[in-house]
Design a protein around this nucleic acid. Structure first.
Lengths: 174, 174
DNA sequence: CTGCGATGTCTGCTGTAGCAAATATTGCAC
DNA sequence: GTGCAATATTTGCTACAGCAGACATCGCAG
């Protein structure tokens, strides 16, 4: 049988686990709704993410490497997502004139059109399930939530804000 | 082709997108750190999730279907995760005496031991990257954040769509 | 100019998860 | 009891993403 030891009571329902679980449950639920909405337009979440990054770039164009840095994908993953988007005519590959190693991904007119079609519903969904409930609950709750997220993000993802992040810790504290 | 329409300017940098992106970035960053920590103990996030659900159940035992309802996996996914855990001796399958359709997954002593070994580091990680920063920033910020998450979760998750959120074997303590 | 390490992208292999179908069992209607 | 729909689990197929290696190109030291 299992003997946890009297002086080392391991409890499996620590409050911190609950908080983390709540965080995960909320986000994955929201992400699932978002995925379903995007699927109505034939887009997966990563495809949407890639295209949003492209459309928000100066000329609708980004290097593959930069795409992988801005999304949660590796360069390998970006290669294949862009493959799919190119097959569907939503994105095009474009050679770089000055560096023949780099390839740009460029969003096409069709891609912009698809995004423009998908975006209103997506924004409505975020409004309904994320921003709206927080704003209606309390005048300051949305701002506080966003501020907390930003605080956490700046801790967890130091690269997001290129600046004075003290510990560049990648290792896990033991 | 692309016709944005003069009276309906589609803007691709709506503030709501930013909030959602911040949410996603924060959670995935946190999840990545958690995954790395669990990997030190040879566990993937889903394996950890399954085992936590098991260990918190009355007798360390849950039906496959209930596991799939409590985790983010389909029953198919649960089958294979449990397969892996059984191969490693962390979980065992157990027939149900009264209904021969159902199979229980039971956590083994080795499984409890592994969880007990992995949990302190995992809790420390949550403390460092999630709970700690919020608590230190402001006395009420952690509580407000958790309350907001709970509010959102209650909106997003209720069994309105999928149904079958029935078995409340492991309730989240408040 | 030449050599060589660094950089950017793509490809082979692997592991994982979902969907839909297959299989087994139960409970109910009759 | 028999038939049938519902329930519980597993399995075949497919898609996607990561890792490590392959390949091409660049920039610099000499």
């Amino acid at each position: 049988m299992y003997h946890p030891g009297v002086d080392e009571p391991v409890t499996f329902d620590d409050e911190r686990l609950t908080v983390m679980g709540l965080f995960a449950e909320t986000f994955t639920g929201l992400a699932a709704r978002g995925a379903a909405q995007l699927a109505e337009h034939g887009l997966s979440p990563v495809e949407f993410e890639v295209m949003i990054r492209l459309v928000r770039s100066p000329e609708g164009l980004l290097r593959m490497t930069d795409l992988s840095a801005q999304t949660s994908l590796t360069t390998s993953g970006v290669t294949r997502v862009v493959d799919r988007l190119v097959d569907r005519g939503l994105v095009a590959r474009q050679a770089c004139a000055t560096d023949r190693r780099t390839t740009y991904a460029v969003i096409s007119d069709a891609g912009r059109g698809l995004l423009a079609a998908a975006l209103p519903g997506h924004l409505a969904l975020i409004e309904t399930w994320l921003v709206g409930p927080l704003r209606e609950a309390d005048g300051t709750r949305l701002d506080a939530f966003v501020a907390s997220l930003r605080l956490l993000r700046d801790h967890v993802v130091p690269c997001a804000t290129a600046g004075s992040e003290g510990p560049q810790v990648v290792a896990v504290p033991s």
